[in-house]
């Protein structure tokens, strides 16, 4: 038997990939994004742009779509993240101990440690700002949460021997998830609609305390995503000691 080269072996796969990619490309070109395909008031996006701020009380339209119009999806996405983090954590726990020592890598330099320590509080504060102002300015719970997680990551890089509490992370994560659902259930109890933004009037558009329940949901998401991603990074790092 002649040994076939790598290219020959991957030819069928390459052909299928090109076929699918080509079809998708041509189809996407054909659609013409941004043009009106239906009467303009029938397109959901136009309705969101026209009425988003008045219907949801959030001056960031992305937030009004993500947390109010399509809030149920967001609950689903939070769950996806939760499952992924739980799954990865569980699989790492299930790993058989192979007895091999993992290389720790070089110690972080003075600049890394000190600079990191200076930057971490600023980054964490910025993350908190982003999720608190999700209904006013770009960003929101997801973005704020991952920014906080980057601060945590920087901490782990700057201080590789640091002890972290996985319990606290998973506790705050679960409580935040439960409060997200709890806020949704308020709607179900008051108006019979899950995740309904039931507060009257939403407050003054553009103020920090406005938008009804949306900022509360974003706070819950921010805490949840932050602790989840931090927990994931911490799990992946493994036990440093």
């Amino acid at each position: 038997m002649m040994e076939r080269s790598t290219i020959q072996r991957s030819l069928p796969a390459l052909a299928i990939s090109i076929l699918i990619a080509g079809t998708l490309f041509l189809a996407f070109v054909e659609i013409g994004f941004g043009e009106n395909k239906v009467d303009s008031e029938d397109a959901v996006a136009n309705r969101y742009i026209a009425n988003g701020t008045t219907e949801t009380g959030s001056s960031n339209l992305v937030t009004s779509v993500v947390v109010n119009y399509r809030g149920f999806d967001t609950l689903g996405e939070v769950t996806v993240l939760f499952l992924a983090a739980t799954g990865v954590g569980a699989m790492i726990n299930l790993l058989p101990e192979d007895g091999k020592k993992r290389s720790k890598g070089p110690k972080p330099s003075l600049i890394m440690t000190q600079g990191g320590m200076l930057a971490i509080p600023v980054i964490a504060l910025f993350g908190t700002y982003v999720f608190l102002h999700g209904h006013l300015s770009p960003g929101g719970g997801f973005q704020g949460g991952v920014i906080i997680a980057t601060a945590f990551l920087l901490y782990l890089i700057a201080k590789p021997d640091a002890k972290t509490s996985h319990r606290t992370l998973s506790l705050s994560e679960s409580l935040a998830g439960l409060s997200f659902i709890g806020i949704g259930l308020i709607g179900l109890a008051v108006s019979g609609i899950f995740l309904d933004n039931v507060i009257e009037g939403f407050g003054v558009l553009g103020e920090l305390v406005s938008g009804g329940l949306l900022p509360l949901i974003y706070i819950a998401i921010g805490i949840k995503v932050g602790s989840e991603m931090s927990g994931l990074v911490e799990k992946m790092r493994g036990d440093a000691s």
Partner: peptide, 12 residues
């Protein structure tokens, strides 16, 4: 909004 998420998730 997307840029923020992409920067922190994708690149960090």
């Amino acid at each position: 909004d997307v840029a923020m998420a992409e920067a922190s998730i994708g690149s960090a």
